[in-house]
Simulated assay, not measured.
Amino acid sequence: MEPMQFIETLAVRTRPRAMHDLSQTIGERLRSLDAGDGLLTAFVRHTSASLTIQENADPDVQADLLDALDRLAPAGPLYRHSVEGPDDMPAHIKTVLTSTSLAIPVLRGRLMLGTWQALYLVEHRAQPHQREIVLHFAGTRALEPRPPAPRR
């Protein structure tokens, strides 16, 4: 098997206080590069947004998670750091509670997520932002190039 590695940046325009499923976009990128087996690391280059792997079947899970994070770190005049607005320091706290990087195994060019899992970018701020996620794949090239996956 031929070793391969790539590093690139994925730009994502976010909606305010939302979870953005990146699984399909990243999966398509792995397929287009003919990735085989290896490890994908995803890293968000911001301190007020995060990454998480969570359930993708019921959107109520995402809403409940966002609400729970708001209860843990509410916006308002509670913090010394307020230069960027009342939602900024709570966003930093939420990022500490979640994660800025994740490692996901890749098998035959596919993220090895569970049946009900997706990789999400979590926007903690109350305004939309342009976020950057660095993707680093280290592994092997697919034995045979695959045709693009059909769109759902």
Rank of each mutant, 00 (worst) to 15 (best):
L107R: 13
T47Y: 00
H92L: 04
L143P: 01
A142W: 01
A149R: 15
H46T: 09
G139V: 11
S48K: 01
D88Y: 14
G76I: 13
L97A: 04
Q54R: 06
G27V: 05
I7R: 15
R131G: 09
I26C: 08
A57C: 05
V44E: 10
S48A: 15
W116M: 00
Q24K: 01
G139W: 06
S23G: 12
Q130N: 12
A57H: 07
P150N: 07
G114N: 08
A142R: 06
T140S: 14
M1Q: 12
E28A: 12
L107I: 13
Y120R: 02
L143G: 13
L113T: 12
P16E: 13
T98K: 11
W116K: 00
R108I: 01
I7F: 03
L39D: 13
E55W: 01
P77Q: 10
G109T: 03
D58C: 11
Q62R: 04
L65S: 05
R108E: 13
P77R: 08
E2Q: 09
G76P: 10
V83I: 11
V134G: 08
I7P: 01
H81R: 10
I26D: 07
L39N: 06
R71G: 06
T41W: 00
G76F: 08
R125C: 04
S32P: 04
Q24G: 12
R31F: 01
L39G: 05
G109E: 12
A75K: 10
R146S: 14
I53G: 01
L135T: 06
P59M: 00
S23F: 09
T52E: 13
H46S: 14
L113V: 04
V96T: 00
S99M: 11
A68R: 07
M89K: 01
R71I: 00
L113P: 10
P145L: 09
L69W: 14
